[in-house]
């Protein structure tokens, strides 16, 4: 068995238009590396150069946001379903958003 991964519209250019692809890995990081070996470029859209999950995407394992499961260290099992969605966020002022992103990154790290 493998892990089913649901790909959002904006990233389907990396999967030949496929809405669902399969992959494998013991952690989310492993799964993303596995996907990237067949769908080159996908990893860069999910993981920052600093090696953390991008702020612009939400990733879920089954029904849980991976930010509450250890982010890239989240453990995966065969038969799990992973869903990727574009994070929907924004707002009037860049500096406030930057502060919110910074505090989110801190809380994400703290949760690991």
């Amino acid at each position: 068995m493998a892990i089913e991964v649901r790909i959002p519209t904006i990233l389907r250019s990396y999967t030949g238009g496929a809405k669902v692809v399969e992959g494998s890995g013991d952690t989310l990081a492993d799964l993303i590396a596995d996907l990237d070996s067949r769908h080159g470029g996908l990893k860069a859209r999910l993981v920052t150069d600093a090696g953390v999950l991008h702020r612009f995407v939400n990733v879920y394992v089954n029904d849980e946001d991976v930010r509450f499961l250890g982010a890239l260290d989240a453990k995966l099992n065969d038969g799990d379903s992973v869903t990727i969605l574009p994070a929907v966020a924004g707002g009037a002022f860049g500096f406030a958003a930057a502060a919110a992103i910074a505090s989110h990154a801190v809380s994400t790290r703290a949760a690991r």
Partner: peptide
């Protein structure tokens, strides 16, 4: 007042 974010 200056930022919005959908609850994931």
């Amino acid at each position: 007042m200056t930022f919005y974010e959908f609850d994931s």
